[in-house]
């Protein structure tokens, strides 16, 4: 489904954020990407739908080369859902309008069709009664659930999560993770950048550990948590699981 081959990315001529990153995510697979801050994990996930350009290697999404100038990027992006750390709902639009905008403007669905789809997904994340509100009137956890519903409304073939719970208060994290666990249970292909090791050990199939722009470890979940091969991953895990 998602394939990265020898991906290199630089910011400016001197700073390489991604170094020879190679991995793949199969259909229905849930892959968690973790690592210390500044390790390039968010950048990596943003390269998958070309929000960030890459300078070397290639990325293949559902058989289509992402970093090919001939690729219709808006169309490709509309098939991959993305959820951001800071939700990024559109503040001037009501919740239902947030859900309908791309369905209508990108997929060309009728307003009624988009509305029905949006309401169904809103119901699914437990926020149906908030459809007429504005994003600023919802809590962070609620906003993030709306953001997930907005991405799902596009009927994505895969979902990318960029630290979806990092900006949330602790009591709101679980309501978002619950939605993600459900999604994984339905067989959605997911690539998740997160520090939530509980989530990783519960639903991930594989864990990718990154440090300084490199994929240091790419292992099955049990192998990663059981006996990480690299020192760096071991140190990271011991720190993060300390408490």
């Amino acid at each position: 489904m998602i394939e990265l081959r020898h991906v290199d990315k630089w910011y400016g001529p001197n700073f390489q954020v991604l170094k020879d990153c190679t991995t793949r995510v199969a259909k229905g697979e849930v892959v968690v990407v973790c690592g210390p801050s500044g390790s390039g994990k968010s950048t990596l996930i943003k390269c998958v739908n070309a929000l960030e350009p890459i300078q070397g290697g290639e990325i293949i999404l559902d058989g289509i080369k992402v970093n090919d100038p001939a690729t219709d990027l808006p169309k490709l992006r509309s098939r991959v859902g993305m959820v951001f750390q800071h939700f990024e709902l559109f503040p001037h639009l009501r919740i239902q309008e947030n859900l309908c905008l791309a369905q209508e403007k990108v997929l060309g669905r009728s307003h009624d069709e988009a509305q029905a789809k949006g309401m169904k997904l809103l119901d699914r994340v437990g926020l149906k009664e908030h459809a007429g509100k504005y994003p600023a009137e919802l809590s962070g956890g609620q906003q993030q659930r709306v953001a997930i519903a907005r991405a799902l409304a596009m009927d994505p073939i895969a979902m990318l999560f960029d630290e979806p719970t990092s900006a949330l208060d602790p009591e709101m994290i679980s309501e978002v993770l619950d939605v993600m666990v459900d999604l994984a249970g339905e067989g959605m292909t997911m690539m998740v950048v997160t520090h939530e090791m509980g989530f990783a050990s519960k639903v991930a199939h594989r864990v990718i550990f990154m440090d300084q722009g490199e994929i240091v470890e790419d292992a099955l979940k049990d192998d990663f948590f059981g006996k990480p091969r690299s020192d760096r991953a071991q140190k990271f895990l011991s720190k993060i699981l300390q408490h």
Partner: peptide, 10 residues
């Protein structure tokens, strides 16, 4: 905001 809109395919 721009990234979210772009990611939706706009």
């Amino acid at each position: 905001q721009k990234q979210a809109a772009t990611a939706l395919g706009l």
